[in-house]
Write a protein that binds this DNA or RNA. Sequence first.
DNA 1: CTAACGTTTGTCCAATTGGTCAAAAAATGC
DNA 2: GCATTTTTTGACCAATTGGACAAACGTTAG
Lengths: 212, 212
Amino acid sequence: MSIEAAAPRRTTRIQQEKREKILEAALDVFSANGFRGATIDQIAEAAGMSKPNLLYYFRGKEDMHTTLMVRLLETWLAPLRELDDVGDPVTELRSYIRKKLEMSRDFPRESRLFANEILQGAPRIKELLEGELRSLVDEKANIIKSWMRAGKIARTDPWHLIFAIWATTQHYADFDVQVRSVLGPDRGGDGRFEDAARFLEQLFIDGLKPGK
Amino acid sequence: MSIEAAAPRRTTRIQQEKREKILEAALDVFSANGFRGATIDQIAEAAGMSKPNLLYYFRGKEDMHTTLMVRLLETWLAPLRELDDVGDPVTELRSYIRKKLEMSRDFPRESRLFANEILQGAPRIKELLEGELRSLVDEKANIIKSWMRAGKIARTDPWHLIFAIWATTQHYADFDVQVRSVLGPDRGGDGRFEDAARFLEQLFIDGLKPGK
DNA sequence: CTAACGTTTGTCCAATTGGTCAAAAAATGC
DNA sequence: GCATTTTTTGACCAATTGGACAAACGTTAG
């Protein structure tokens, strides 16, 4: 026994990799089936390992889910965090909307994971919403308000503006099946995101140009 | 035995009432927990009857769900169906948006039921989306297009316009927890729907006024 | 080589859950 | 009142599922 107190075991490279692989599989399964719809067996199979082996790396299903959730929330809110006081308001907002839409295109699983959670009443991240998220949105809403006061963009409700941006952009990930179904095989292909980008730009940016 | 062929048994008043009661309970449970998250026992308890009794009126969980789904789809699409060729375009769209928002306020369970289904890939109503819904949207999109050609409203993509209206209005039902959390106790009360109505009116209607 | 430790798995278990069934209880027709 | 039909329920079942565990396996340091 060494002199030092029992140091918490360093996580080895192999442990890290396994945990990553599991989380990747869990994201797949949770986002496609929701928390209750997902089974540990499904995740295990998707990760290419046995169920007891998963439970060696995570305490349980709940553990995987919250780990995913907390980690992804950061990525998810990054674009909003970047909304910057000093930039040109219209440019900032345009860039925010584009980033959000790109996230729906590139990370639809993450979007659906959150959508699932919120739909079920956000039992596992309610505090985060009321705390961290709320203050972040308040902060950014105030920035937007200051832009309005300065006459840089049209006056409107910043909170609902943010909701509208969330709703319209995430719609293309969360309601993907519906979007594709309605657009049909022709218009529903890869081009739909460019069409959406053009539309949203017109809707939000043109509508927000100052002086009507 | 009578001369007539075995007539399909008339559904009695009591049967109708029980089925209604069950569907009401099922809507509660399905919308709050999703299909897989809902249990027959929960529905039975919510309906105030025993599980085997439920299964006397419905063949199974799936049966309740599809019955709900098909029935509610009509209600859900009613506002869009009413979008009328002959009315004033701006009035028509304003009225559509208002109705959709009111539905989110008055029928949040229905909204969440659909959201849940779509999120999971719409396994049970995919054909409906690709058939009935698609042709309805196409029809209305063409009406909107004709308005644009006539210079009555600004030019934009009608399909994505419809998506944006769906997304923004249903957001207030599907993401209710998040909306409330972000707005906080003060702004998140009953008034949030009026604020939303004002905002959406400005966003969509002002933005669509013809001639920029 | 071997002891110690980290990793993996087969097996098992208890709880949950969708659904069945036969028998009891109501309701209905005569 | 009585026979028939409809409605309700208690008991039961098989499948699924989250999780526990000890034994087996691999790896590494001495």
